[in-house]
Design a protein around this nucleic acid. Structure first.
Length: 830
RNA sequence: GCCAGAGUGGUGGAAUGGUAUACACGGCGGAUUCAAAAUCCGCUGUCGCAAGACUUAGGGGUUCAAAUCCCCUCUCUGGUACCA
């Protein structure tokens, strides 16, 4: 008997799949029913599924679609599993592109931003993402600014925010300061302009106070976070242990410096090489150098060279080692020999103390410099095997010599002894240094949250009163690209001192936008009913946090993810919350490529999500994106494969006509089924088993989709309508997180939406009467045998030998191995 | 340089010690059609007429058995980089 659909295929009649109609219908249904709002019933088990929120640039790109397709699959799955799911979205809406657009086309940053947000909300809806609507927010909302400014004040009061003059990274194009984390290869992370150093006042978050904890608690994230990200953060924090000690000038050098300085301190991670010190080097910005310039102790020519060094961008400074002898000497702390003091361009003022001891014999960098300027190279470590070479520095572990009482020690182990010696004689101490710097957060731009401080002539730097928050941006500004619009505004900055009431000046710097993204995930936990009243409550935070699954791009591995961890720890210490880490599990999705390159406007290889939705529908876009590669890998766009995804959905929709309407899963007597029918059931339940595994553990949606396709192929090879119905009951349930619209449509048409629930695995479908075993000779597969399930091991071996007799002639059988239900391996000799 | 990750058909990828190449794309052939699209069916790792042999970047090792574990080399990707 032929099934109805085979008849229809012959006649060319299909169920017409119209993505637009179906998707619109269900999007309206979800919106009307508030289907994706979490409940406030905190007795239910929860899942907090979060994707990194977008900057409202105007339109979604494929990277966004991938990001939210992944998080939406998680959210929808856990909703099916009866969890209380929080899957919120917002917009990281402050930032320079809004101002750049204003400069370019005269729009107001606010209007530009909120227009974009409206458009992008429409795109989210058309993709069927199951975001909570009630909790949508934009970080440029005044309500958001209000609470953020409150936090800033709290942090300032607790010494976690301070203002200081310092050498800053300045982007000449964007006319603003950048954090170290925002300088990429010496250039601005946004516009690629080479950075220059500028001396100015700036606000800093004291992130270095948390350096140790940020590093140590990375190990608690092991397993939940990709290793790569953990390593990147570890390297970024850059903890190193070593010895810090003072180098004292000799008498004549002290005189030259008019006894203003008698020493400077240096840091080394290689105290074992201390006897090999043959020169020392200061950063060109070092205070001793500055003193010498100011007091005319150096020739004009030398001063010009120093100025050149300090004004060179860090990229150029790295090209060639340059040095200047200062004509000063220090005394070696252990040998009392004099050691010359140099300026070297490779010594960085902002690491350690801006001065180093140099051991050319055992450090590549010091070696290059010594060769160039013909300085002494004193070896003090020799290899355990082989000879020391004079052509290169020996940087391995070896045995100490020419090192006084430490001779003969293993260089690695001697570090402890040498540090101990320095400490006992009070000439130095064990120290830890970090690469991590405090986070500079002020920006000289308009479109950001104002820093809520006031400069008063009498009181100095004072905080704004909390009841006056938010300090909102003025709307009547001119954005020209020249200077800081807040500073140029005629009235905005004039205010009264919050302490003495006298006329004062408002701080015109605004905050780095990474401040907003450092706590938005906490704001989402707040019940919208209380949004006006409070930023969030401890009770709500302790229910929803930490984020069970965070999904976003690897490009945020350091910046955002480090700052968000820092804020969480600060908020904990300020008593706002009581956990240590914000994100329990992190999935970093790969980039979307086309023709092997990242999709970008400048390369002209973008694919517009709206166009794909219009042509094929949101379900096709989502299916392709989740099927083409595992989420953590790069995804190569392929128009043909998109077409393939569309065809699968069409087929999936069309064959649903084989379902017999039912409100419960059909009961099937498995033993009465034909071989094809049994096989189809097995494939369906295999897909179910795989689905649970994928959603909970492996996150390889591509294999879940492949499993569904296999099950469809198997269903297609049989005609039992109960098997069809059961198959669809399960497949439309496990595929709902991926292609929600078409699954809801089928489910409502045939199952009264009763199948979008946890599905029970039926074990009987996996029980088989016979099994095919591979037969291998010496591990190489040669043939196969089909055996009944209860066949004894001996019989299996006999059958295998017979089947493989061709390969066994004249051979001695050494061993026979039977792996139940898998294979037989026969080991032969000769 | 250092640190991490990866290398499987023409392509995206599957298999995490047990029948390598699932699923899909592309290609080829067929059915349907006046024709095309759509749809359906079949074939498709390499060499070979076949029997068969070979095949997971390359080399070595462990094991009855390795894409998978270990060692070496190469290549690619990402991060970081004169960090003392």
């Amino acid at each position: 008997m032929e099934s109805e659909f085979l008849e229809r295929i012959k006649l060319g009649i299909f169920l017409e799949y119209n993505s637009t109609t179906i998707e619109k219908k269900w999007q309206e249904y979800w919106a009307k029913n508030g289907s994706f709002e979490p409940t406030e019933d905190f007795t239910k088990e929860k899942k907090y599924i979060l994707s990194m929120f977008p900057f409202p640039s105007g339109r979604l790109h494929m990277g966004h679609v991938r990001n939210y397709s992944i998080s939406d699959a998680f959210a929808r799955y856990y909703r099916q599993q009866n969890f209380n799911v929080l899957h919120p979205i917002g917009f990281d809406s402050f930032g320079m592109p809004a101002e750049n657009a204003a400069i370019k086309n005269g729009s107001h940053p606010k209007g530009w931003t909120y227009n974009n947000i409206d458009y992008m909300k429409g795109e989210f809806a058309s993709l069927g993402f199951s975001f909570s609507k009630e909790r949508e927010l934009a970080t440029s909302d005044e309500l958001y600014t209000k609470f953020e400014q409150g936090f800033i004040i709290d942090m300032f009061e607790n010494g976690l925010l301070y203002r200081e003059k310092g050498l800053l990274n300045w982007c000449p194009h964007d006319q603003t300061v950048l954090a170290n984390e925002q300088v990429v290869d010496g250039c601005c992370w946004r516009c690629d302009t080479p950075i220059v150093k500028k001396d100015m006042n700036q606000y800093y978050f004291k992130i270095t106070q948390y350096a140790d904890e940020l590093l140590d608690s990375l190990k608690n994230l092991d397993g939940g976070w990709p290793k790569q990200v953990l390593t990147m953060q570890e390297n970024w924090i850059g903890k190193s242990n070593g010895l810090e000690f003072d180098l004292f000038f000799d008498e004549s050098s002290k005189e030259k410096l008019s006894n203003t300085f008698d020493s400077f301190d240096v840091f080394t991670t290689r105290p074992d090489t201390i006897y090999g010190v043959s020169y020392t080097a200061l950063a060109p910005e070092h205070k001793i150098v500055t003193y010498m310039i100011e007091n005319n102790l150096l020739s004009d020519e030398v001063i010009a060279q120093i100025k050149y060094m300090t004004n060179t961008s860090s990229i150029d400074r790295q090209k060639e080692k340059k040095g200047i002898a200062l004509g000063l000497n220090v005394v070696h702390p252990l040998t009392d020999k004099t050691v010359p003091v140099w300026i070297a361009n490779f010594v960085l003022m902002d690491y350690g103390s801006g001065a180093v001891m140099a051991v050319p014999a055992h450090d590549d960098r010091d070696f290059d410099f010594a060769k160039k300027y013909d300085l002494a190279i004193n070896a003090v470590i020799k290899p355990y095997e082989g000879e020391l070479s004079s052509d290169a520095a020996f940087t391995e572990v070896g045995e100490l010599f020419n090192s006084g009482e430490f001779d003969g020690l293993n260089s690695k182990k001697s570090q402890y002894n040498i540090i101990k010696y320095f400490e006992e004689n009070k000439i130095g101490k064990k120290t830890t240094n970090y690469r991590l710097k405090d986070w500079g957060v002020s920006r000289q731009r308009y479109w950001g949250a104002p820093i809520p401080f006031i400069h008063c002539e009498d009181c100095g730097l004072v905080m704004e009163k909390k009841e006056n928050l938010p300090i909102a941006l003025p709307e009547d500004v001119e954005i020209t690209g020249e200077g800081n619009p807040l500073d140029n505004h005629p009235t905005w900055k004039h205010c009264k001192c919050s302490q003495c009431g006298k006329d004062a000046i408002r701080e015109t710097d605004t905050m780095d936008t990474f401040v907003e993204s450092s706590w938005y995930f906490l704001r989402f936990c707040a019940s919208p009913a209380n949004w006006e009243k409070e930023a969030f409550s401890k009770e709500q935070l302790s229910y929803w946090m930490g984020v069970d699954q965070y999904v976003g791009g690897i490009e945020h591995a350091i910046l955002h993810l480090l700052y968000a961890r820092f804020f969480t720890k600060v908020f904990r210490d300020l008593g706002y919350l009581d956990f240590d880490e914000p994100f329990d599990n992190l999935l970093t999705q790969g980039m979307v490529l086309k023709d092997g390159a990242k999709m970008s406007k400048s390369k002209g290889n973008t694919v517009d999500p709206d166009a794909i939705i219009e042509k094929y529908g949101a379900d096709t876009a989502r299916l392709f994106i989740l099927f083409a590669a595992p989420p953590t890998q790069e995804l190569e766009w392929n128009d043909n494969a998109v077409e393939g995804a569309y065809k699968f959905i069409k087929r999936f929709f069309d064959r649903s006509s084989n379902i017999v309407k039912t409100d419960t899963i059909p009961t099937i007597n498995h033993s009465t089924l034909s071989k094809d029918e049994k096989y189809a059931r097995k494939k369906v339940y295999e897909a179910l088993v795989r689905a649970n595994d994928v959603y909970n553990e492996k996150h390889t949606f591509n294999t879940l989709i492949a499993g569904t396709m296999e099950a469809m192929n198997a269903l297609n090879a049989q005609t039992n309508s109960d098997v069809w119905s059961e198959g669809y009951w399960i497949l439309s349930s496990i595929m709902e997180p991926v292609i929600p619209h078409v699954c809801w449509d089928i489910s409502s048409e045939y199952f009264s939406l009763n199948n979008l629930n946890p599905q029970v695995v039926v074990d009987e479908v996996f029980v088989e009467d016979s099994v095919t075993l591979g037969v291998s000779i010496n591990g190489k597969r040669r043939t196969e045998i089909e055996v009944a399930l209860e066949t004894t091991k001996e019989d299996i071996i006999e059958m295998a030998k017979e089947a493989a007799s061709k390969w066994l002639e004249d051979k001695e059988i050494v061993k026979e191995i039977v792996v139940p239900k898998k294979l037989v391996n026969i080991v032969i000799k000769g």
